[in-house]
Write a protein that binds this DNA or RNA. Structure first.
Lengths: 195, 195
DNA sequence: CGATTCTTTGAAAACAGTCAATCTGTGTGG
DNA sequence: CCACACAGATTGACTGTTTTCAAAGAATCG
């Protein structure tokens, strides 16, 4: 169960994990299984866990004044999920996180991470890289959202995340792109005509 | 000149800088002065500098297929600016960064930062926190962009960055919000009527 | 099969963008 | 000191895109 995480860390850091570090990871990360539709985090709570997805798929979203959901992130196998802001600042989260499928997670609390600070340099480096990649990805997405039409954003999404198109219903992808499901349906219809 | 940066670091980390660290900062960060409209980075270049703004104001923006500019970030005194993606990955940047006013920067190259890795824990911690804050801020902005109308986004902007409203012309703020200057002008006119 | 979820589509309304003209204030150079 | 250029802001008329709401069709699952 923890093996996937260990492999992930080794693939994303310069020096491989020592035996002691592997031990630490086994004890610091708790297994958590979620059924479809089950919450990992609900709006208003403080995000207790940073979670590595071993199997399954999740989404992070908020709900606006009209009750509409807006997906800010998807997560699948080998991705991480959690509300960084709430997790690091210990503030109530503005987001919900729930499972889109049966999901298996490895979770770690903030306290546990702090304990590992001096014990596992590889893990800490990995988390730093994660922040870095995350900042870059979010920046890109923001930039694309500001600069391009829904049609181009969908094309880009299709190109970057073909797996998601297969895996998630359209209305979720529409929500991720910041448009309505009707609009996405029409965009797809047009793109098809164009071919 | 470097004093403002030293103060900034001390305010943003747990342990104050040692004398050696202050020395290191003086030698690692180069002063750079930019006139209004001068570039720090142009699209296609690799972003050589991460810059701390001592005085002045800057913007980071991209240009879409139609030649329109889209501002992804502003920077003023005590903020950092640079294209993280290009800077860390050494890839050609999709952005331009230029000065909106006469600006004084303290710049550091990637190589210099790597050299400091083992020499100044405080600086490294500060950079990590910067990444973290940056990721959080970008996430918030993305979320607001997906979830709210231009009118609400402007209201939020007004609340969060009142200094910017004074300081930057409206068409730049419109570009930051992802709308045209005409639309922003009308939104402001409506908001005024509403009061 | 029946229920639920997902997708498509139509018509009207709301919204934002484009283009162009005008108005404002600022600052420069003659 | 005036004339002029220039950058910024506003406004109107028009266009185009996206949303909304509702209904109906398709797919999936227990």
């Amino acid at each position: 169960m923890h093996q996937k995480l260990i492999t992930y860390i080794n693939e994303h850091t310069s020096s491989p994990l020592t035996n002691e570090e592997m031990q630490l990871i086994e004890t610091s990360f708790q297994v958590k299984k979620l059924r479809k539709r089950q919450y990992l985090l609900q709006e208003g709570e403080i995000c207790k866990y940073l979670a590595f997805i071993v199997k399954g798929a999740m989404r992070q979203y908020n709900i606006d004044g009209n009750g509409s959901e807006h997906i800010v992130n998807f997560g699948i196998e080998n991705w991480w999920i959690g509300d960084r802001e709430s997790y690091t600042m210990l503030t109530p989260s503005a987001y919900n996180i729930d499972a889109l499928e049966e999901t298996e997670l490895l979770t770690i609390t903030r306290t546990e991470i702090l304990k590992l600070q001096n014990k596992s340099p590889a893990l800490i480096e990995m988390l730093r890289l994660l922040d870095e990649k995350n900042a870059i990805a979010t920046q890109r997405r923001l930039s694309s959202n500001i600069s391009y039409t829904a049609e181009k954003r969908y094309a880009e999404f299709e190109r970057c995340y073909p797996q998601f198109i297969q895996r998630f219903p359209q209305h979720l992808i529409a929500s991720y792109l910041g448009i309505t499901k009707s609009s996405l349906s029409r965009i797809r219809a047009n793109a098809f005509k164009g071919k």
